[in-house]
């Protein structure tokens, strides 16, 4: 079966998913940055009382804060970006919904939620690339990684 059929038939659960880090809106940006660093993620999701995603705070927001010399003790809710409806996918949705969600929102990270709408994990561009690489192991995973395009001198010179 080709990749095009697979992205229509396979579900989000079959994508390489990462454990999402969630924070509340009143947490400081400094603490959110520490959580992102510790979990080696470029994004944390800001959730409400029911565990549903309200927004996200990514390394792009961190960059804006640092470039603008904004104090990092401010609440993360003040600097988060709201997640649109198509920025969330369910585990049972087809993979194509992730592609469409990223295309519509131009987001790097999508929030994966359960049937109750609570955050369960995250996926995004890296997960999609790994999914494509898994489908073409001979073409993508096996590469000659030489650094030089051509030799500096003629062969035998």
């Amino acid at each position: 079966m080709g990749l095009r059929e697979d992205i229509m038939n396979e579900t989000v659960a079959q994508l390489p998913l990462r454990k999402a880090v969630t924070v509340t809106a009143d947490l400081s940006a400094k603490e959110a940055i520490r959580l992102m660093r510790d979990s080696k993620l470029g994004c944390v999701f800001v959730i409400d009382d029911q565990g549903r995603p309200m927004g996200k705070f990514t390394e792009r927001q961190v960059l804006k804060l640092v470039c603008g010399c904004v104090p990092l003790d401010q609440q993360v809710g003040k600097h988060m970006v709201k997640i649109p409806e198509c920025g969330c996918v369910r585990l049972t949705d087809p993979v194509v919904k992730v592609l469409e969600g990223m295309k519509q929102t131009r987001l790097r990270f999508l929030c994966v939620v359960d049937d109750a709408g609570k955050v369960v994990s995250l996926t995004g561009q890296k997960g999609l690339m790994e999914y494509v690489a898994d489908h073409f192991p001979r073409q993508i995973k096996v590469q000659v990684m030489t650094s030089k395009l051509h030799m500096n001198t003629r062969e035998g010179a």
Partner: peptide, 22 residues
Amino acid sequence: RTVYVTDCPAKALNLMAVGGFR
């Protein structure tokens, strides 16, 4: 890690998906 303009896109995807370079 770099790619040349003449490399195939599969090589760039290898660096991103397998090597973890963004």
